[in-house]
Design a protein around this nucleic acid. Sequence first.
DNA 1: AAGTTTCCCTA
DNA 2: GTAGGGAAACTTG
Length: 987
Amino acid sequence: MSKRSTSASPKHAPALDESAHIYLIDGSAYIFRAYFAMFKASQARGASFTRSDGTPTGAVMTFCNMLWKLLREGLDDGKPTHVGVVFDHSGESFRNEIYDAYKANRDEPPEELVPQFPLIREAVRAFGLTPIEQEGYEADDLIATYVAQAKGTGAEITIVSGDKDLMQLVGDDVSMYDPMPGNERRIGRDEVVKKFGVGPDKVVEVQALAGDSTDNIPGIPGIGVKTAAQLIEQFGDVETLLERAGEIKQNKRRENVIQYAEQARISRKLVELDSEVPLEHPLEELGSPEVDGKKLIAFCKAMEFTTLTKRVADAYGLDMDKVAADESLAPDGEPAEDADDDETTDGAPGPAHLATHRAKAIRDIPIDRDAYETVTTLERLNEWLARAREQGYFAFDIETTSLSAMRAEVVGVSMALKPGEACYVPMAHRKADELDFGDANGLAQVPRDAALEALKPVLEDDGILKIGQNLKYDYLVLLGLGIEMRAIDDTMLISYALDTGRGTHGMDELARRHLGHTCITYKEVAGTGKAQVTFDLVPIDKATAYAAEDADVTLRLWLMLKPRLAAEGMTAVYETLERPMVPVLARMEHYGIKVDRDALSRLSGDFAQKLGALESEIYELAGEEFNIGSTKQLADLLFGKLGYPGGRKTKTGAWSTGARVLEDLVADESLTEAQRQLPIKLLEWRQLSKLKNTYTDTLPDYIHPDTGRIHTSYSLGSVRTGRLASTEPNLQNIPIRTREGRQIRTAFVAQDGHKLISADYSQIELRVLAHIADIQALKRAFAEGLDIHAMTASEMFGFPIEKMPPEIRSRAKAINFGIIYGISAFGLAQQLGIPRSEAGEYIKKYFERFPGIRDYMEEMKAEAHDKGYVRTIFGRKIHFPELETATQAARGNFERAAINAPIQGSAADILRRAMIRMPDALAEAGLSARMLLQVHDELIIEAREDEVEPTIDTAVQIMSAANEPAVDVSVPLKVDARAADNWDDAH
DNA sequence: AAGTTTCCCTA
DNA sequence: GTAGGGAAACTTG
């Protein structure tokens, strides 16, 4: 018995007579249906249904909203006088004694739902009611018994449920009401007839014959609801039918009825509700709908339901601030870092305990690569999938011919159901003539199309959780095959949410770190270098060991890491900032961006010509030919033979030839005009060779042969601040600063009839800084739309903003950037080309003018030292384990990173939130526009020409409000957007 | 063939 | 001073 059950004091309800109206609410069914129908769907859209300590509360909230509405307003026919909220008792019911497979095919409840069951019972108490449940009985039986007893009183009865198993109870004074949000409906006799083809009194007969796969009620094979209704119409009931089965005309049907007669009798017992349960809470004790506002507010506050708290306070004219959260249910404040001795209020082990307990148990199960199964038939694959369906979750991995998802062909898939229980399903392996696999390595495998067809419904089922490592890859490959994965968890992203800064999040490293296990490397199975083969040529036995191990390890990592999310209060970060990025990014990568190959080719030609001319001039000036691209040869020549004054050295002691050194030579007044020509030409050559080699020569190779577009890959979990990184190719470093560089941008174009829209945040990091450090002067400047660098310069150097000399403004700009980067006198001096002492003076002056900034910096340093991490405004943690061990010299670097991380990271989180909402926002606005690229503070969207204006409006709207409603930002987020035919003109 | 260094492109 | 990716040269195995 719960500690608090004694404190629940049911109020006295009026007498039960003809004027009474009883609501019997089927709590358990509602929770499940609400969860699958809406809570999960909203979650997939990125909505947060998690309390600040990570406890999932979506189902509790839905339930409370339903109950609130029900008690306050009643249903379509007035308010109730008596209310009972009824739940299934956990564990088996008497039906399992009749038929041990009853409900045996039910999935375990979803992980997010489990901690919510006790909370929902608490919710019922908060409404002043007693949750009704009884060991050995299901909610339906209790409801049936209440109905049977209430009938004698003449009261009107409404069963609040949409469950067809309760339809047998409908009668003169008894109807049902399905409370599913958006699908509310009254269910009376007519609705029952529509569903079962017979009246409520014959429903059990029909159900007995037709069976029910969700409850695992067998029924009679070959008979569905239609046939069952027809048979019952003819024979009256199951028993009569079985006696006179010989009269059935259809041969097969008759045989089945006779053969499965006993099964039908059992089924009837299973579906018929027990209306004679000895009630622990008799009918007279049903509660009243009157609510104690304070008690309910205390509960809602503990759950952090802001909207409902307000609604309740308004309804009762109470001041919500004056009611404290129910402490026995509220989060404990700082979530438990340490995984020891935490307990929930019911004394059950909490998430932190679960996390450590799981970790230990999983590490103890050895990994045996020889135990994995190779699935070679479709039948066997379907058996695995059926088990996955039954379990409700499984680990999953695709093997393909390419690391590039857009070019990958599926070769096989692996899956794991439990630690050590994994298989590989080869689909498209082939023999290469030059390799002898031997006889034992035949190519028995499941044809690809058939295998994918079997997989598709499971992958797309949002009731079956697919667990993977870096699932964006699999998602993208499958998207190309017309499969849209739903219900996913990604171990890489879970690890990233938990452990950013504590190492990388690749599977091999996670396996080593958490399981003490070294995975087989890809090279071990596929070879290395020139001898490396694609996965379809890997022998199937090796492939099984490799692929099934991946799935096995992924599952184990998930079992270990997932409970840590709740234990460490990171569930919301994972579910709102990480997981929803997978489908969004996969689609952006899938669409790609159109690139004008010919334009790039022309540029390459131009650059080549100019480079040729420059080379000749450089050889002429140098007096000899050499490899200009070789820094070593160049240094030898410049500082050796030609005697130029050497500037800086690199960290390995070599003379530096970087742009800064060459620029210094150009400006060196001790050199002659003629001597300055060589560094000038070298700088030009460097710039052009960079543009040619890195961009115009390389980008065309990334144009996909089928789509004519470039499909970059965005990496999640690789940047410690939460930013994305773009690879193969990197489209986040396309040139913009020089005229020649911008020509490359013009080659990124919209497709025919479309425009590219570039929407970017203005000064987002400085705005975030102004907010976090709470700097009034900066906040005011942003609110008034001032030129922030000019304003800084004005504050520091005293010039009026309107007459600011450009060079003063640019100094202030450098300082502002320096602040974001965790300023040092050394760095600022280098940036501005001034003595370090002078830079130090600037910084001193800045801090005098903006002391809050210095306070912020000191705070971040202290927090990073004390706690080992800093946080973004959305709660993402960035760990700095290095600070504990760093030497004095190295410490400054980490401290600057800790200062920068909340700024860069919060900005990155804002971008993520905008990106996650954008596709739905565009679709809801009826727009066909698509996000194509993200460049840290900029989104590139492709829109049809006739939709450009509304697309810009939507994008700006979403981006400007991306922080809401999770976090208030005390500075406006300004977004600029424009459209053009190419990226350069749009930016 | 694989790893490291230098340089340079982006926010 | 923050956060990245990547080409080419160079070093090491």
